[in-house]
């Protein structure tokens, strides 16, 4: 699906640029985009390494396990097949803590770690498991309680009460998250049965052999 979206964006953009006569600025932008991507990667490298280091300390000291126990009542129903003491469960808990605190950049390293742990169960498989779907969908919905970045942005552009939007943000986030989880879990159940019949699970088992 990502293949189609990505190629769709590229082809549509180039088509539009030709129609509007923006071919020149587009070719300049292509070169710039590569530099921009490298810059982004360098920023990410710093954040990723720093927080992976901190996370390792949290893991070795047992802090992650404490957090997993705290979140287990909420998270266990969403990830019923995951062991509460597993590394994956810990990483998911850390990711959610960072998201709730509005530390988006910090949540990413925890989330990537969680994906690696979830993938470890069947490393050769290129099909998303139920747990991966639920986890990624949860991360594409917003979980933050205090949108600090948004508040400071509003303030610097002349809002008299930058945080007046807090309650509508919570309402909207809660609705979006509910829809996300209900859709993901519902479709998991549906395609789980369907999938077994169509054989995508067994195709993974075969490729492992």
């Amino acid at each position: 699906m990502l293949n189609y979206i990505w190629s769709g964006i590229v082809i549509l953009s180039v088509g539009c640029a030709i129609v509007f006569g923006k071919a020149e600025s587009l070719s300049a932008a292509m070169v710039d985009s590569a530099a921009e991507a490298v810059e982004l990667l360098l920023t990410l490298l710093g954040i990723l390494c720093l927080w992976s280091g901190i996370m390792r300390i949290a893991g070795d000291s047992g802090l992650t396990r404490l957090l997993s126990r705290l979140f287990a009542p909420v998270l266990h129903p969403l990830f019923p097949r995951l062991d509460r003491e597993s590394e994956a469960f810990g990483a998911i808990s850390m990711n959610i803590t960072a998201n709730l605190l509005g530390l988006g950049n910090t949540a990413t390293p925890f989330g990537l770690k969680a994906m690696e742990e979830l993938h470890r169960a069947d490393p050769s498989c290129d099909v998303a498991t139920d747990e991966m779907v639920v986890f990624v969908v949860m991360n594409t919905a917003s979980l933050q309680l205090l949108p600090t970045m948004l508040g400071s942005l509003r303030q610097s552009y002349g809002s008299r009460e930058p945080f007046e939007i807090l309650v509508p943000v919570w309402i909207s986030s809660a609705c979006a998250l509910t829809v996300a989880l209900v859709t993901a879990v519902g479709l998991n159940r549906l395609t789980g049965k369907e999938g077994r019949r169509l054989g995508w699970r067994s195709s993974c088992l075969l490729s492992r052999r």
Binding site: M1, L2, E116, H119, D126, V127, A128, V133, V136, A141
Partner: peptide
């Protein structure tokens, strides 16, 4: 997230998201 574990078939993730 899926790129980092080389998962290609993401099933209904985008639909739900």
């Amino acid at each position: 997230y899926f790129g980092c574990v080389r998962v290609k078939r993401i099933r209904h993730t985008l639909v739900a998201a």
